[in-house]
């Protein structure tokens, strides 16, 4: 249902990713693995149209995705960026409400659902997002992305700088969201354990290209590849 085809892109004249193609099927959880600087985040930004394509395109449900980040969000693409980027001088509730309202959903209902999904946000509901801890901001960024009611969710290093207990909680939530709402997920990660706990399939990136496609079982069996991916 979600496809990146021959993506080539970067910043200014610098090309970071070359000819990258990948696919996430309906209701699937797919990991995008690779070490720092291989182009995972650039690919995510390509997919959301936050950087313009040099070549290649993105498809959602077999249709070419519209050429603006805002329109892409409206066509069902949710995005949790690396570094979270919550709206710092807006409350937790407002961060969620603005995402829902922008896409024509009832903001009150969206906030209620989000606070039910993520109980750890409830005591912070009226606090400014900028004052939350890193883990709380990460969860808020996820709640905000879910408030647009996406059909495909892009997560960029969601475990970075997040304490282990919250990582476990996040994995549980993502699995539940994927199962109950049928939201497909593409998650870029360096945390192998986290990926293996939620994804069935994975792409491994290297130097701006897809090096291989693999699945959970093959990855679990391949100790050498694991070592390589874990190396910093």
């Amino acid at each position: 249902m979600f496809k990146v085809v021959n993506a080539t892109g970067g910043y200014g004249k610098t090309t970071i990713i070359r000819n990258v193609s990948l696919e996430v099927k309906s209701g699937e959880v797919v990991a995008l693995l690779g070490r720092n600087g291989v182009g995972k985040s650039t690919l995510m930004r390509f997919a959301t149209n936050l950087i313009p394509p040099m070549e290649g395109h993105v498809e959602i449900d077999g249709n070419p995705a519209p050429n603006s980040p805002a329109k892409r969000a409206k066509s069902g693409l949710g995005y949790v960026p690396q570094g979270r980027f919550v709206f710092p001088r807006m409350t937790v509730i407002e961060n969620i409400a603005v995402a829902a309202a922008t896409n024509g959903h009832d903001p009150k209902k969206a906030v209620e659902e989000a606070l039910a999904d993520f109980p750890m946000l409830r005591p912070k509901a009226h606090d400014l997002a900028g004052g939350l801890s890193g883990g709380q901001q990460q969860v808020l960024a996820l709640a905000r992305a879910l408030a647009i009611m996406p059909r495909i969710l892009l997560l960029d290093e969601p475990t970075e700088g997040v304490q282990p207990s919250i990582i476990d909680e996040m994995a549980g939530i993502l699995k539940r969201i994927n199962r109950d709402r049928g939201i497909a997920i593409l998650v870029a990660e360096q945390n192998l354990d986290f990926c293996l706990s939620i994804a069935e399939r994975a792409y491994v990136m290297e130097k701006g290209e897809i090096r291989m496609e693999t699945d959970r079982d093959a990855l679990l069996a391949d100790k050498e590849l694991q070592q390589e991916l874990l190396g910093v």
Partner: peptide, 9 residues
């Protein structure tokens, strides 16, 4: 950029 990514023009 995040405002755009959640659908705000």
């Amino acid at each position: 950029h995040m405002a755009q990514a959640i659908g705000i023009e």
